[in-house]
């Protein structure tokens, strides 16, 4: 009996609608974030993450309303990422009912932003998102670089060093996505996950590349992640969160059943 490893379904939300098509037979509106969140909650999700991919900043208020509606019905921790740049943005999200915000690009341009949020509101509400890509050539010691803007822009920063720096600046958690694996269904980059998990004193969420339930267990067992995040394997109805937990339990991972 001890702390459970968490399973976190992630929803991409564009203009208030869930994208990447959720296909649950018994859901009335698969694009409604409230319905999808409620469904994941019933299946036993430990947290839910919303990634706002709305392109236009004019439409950013939409995600606030989404969070408000979800928080009225779903009583597990909620994380929101995408477009959060100022202390005021963080407060708006928390007041809407989010428990944590994920920050990526804004932290790279202004690392003190992480420190400011940590000092003023508390480190427990800041998740620093790290999009990392392997840049070492074959035969060289492994090295991963930090990318921003959804993995499009290189920063020249070493991902492991960045994770340590963000920990020092007051991040409460790291959301680590392997750009090499994202969308491949080949499993997490376990070497990267382990390198970061071993380098920092705060929890690490593994993301990017999950194609089956064993990948989730491996993220914990071999990657040493504290939590695993996945989108498509849950959205497309391939697996339920409950099945994921069963498999992880069979593999010896402590989960909340």
């Amino acid at each position: 009996m001890s702390l459970a490893k968490r399973i976190i379904p992630c929803l991409d939300v564009d203009n208030g609608r869930v994208v990447k098509g959720v296909q649950f037979v018994d859901i009335r509106d698969a694009g409604d974030p409230v319905e999808v969140a409620r469904r994941y909650d019933k299946e036993g999700a430990d947290e839910i993450t919303f990634l706002d991919i709305t392109a236009s900043s004019d439409d950013r208020d939409t995600i606030v309303h989404v969070v408000e509606h979800v928080a009225e019905e779903v009583f597990i921790p909620l994380t929101v990422g995408g477009g959060i740049r100022k202390l005021e943005d963080v407060r708006t999200m928390l007041n809407a009912g989010a428990d944590k915000v994920a920050i990526n690009t804004a932290a790279v341009f202004n690392p003190d932003f992480v420190r400011e949020v940590s000092d003023r509101i508390g480190s427990q509400c800041i998740v620093v998102a790290i999009d990392a890509k392997q840049v070492s050539a074959a035969g060289e010691p492994l090295r991963w670089e930090l990318f921003t803007h959804g993995g499009r822009k290189p920063t020249g920063l070493d991902a492991v060093e960045w994770a340590q720096k963000m920990t020092d600046y007051g991040a409460g958690e790291i959301l680590l996505t392997s750009m090499d694996r994202d969308g491949t269904k080949a499993g997490f980059d376990l070497t990267l996950t382990r390198a970061i998990a071993d380098a920092v004193s705060i929890p690490v969420i593994a993301s990017g590349g999950v194609g089956n339930l064993d990948h989730l267990a491996e993220g914990v067992l071999e990657g040493r992640a504290d939590a695993v995040l996945a989108a498509s394997i849950f959205h497309f109805g391939e697996y339920t969160v409950g099945q994921a937990k069963q498999r992880m339990a069979e593999r010896g991972v402590e989960v909340r059943l």
């Binding site: 702390l3 968490r6 427990q124």
Partner: peptide, 12 residues
């Protein structure tokens, strides 16, 4: 063990 203690734990 990571700090904060974050997540779902048993209460006896």
């Amino acid at each position: 063990l990571k700090i904060p203690h974050m997540g779902w734990n048993n209460v006896m």
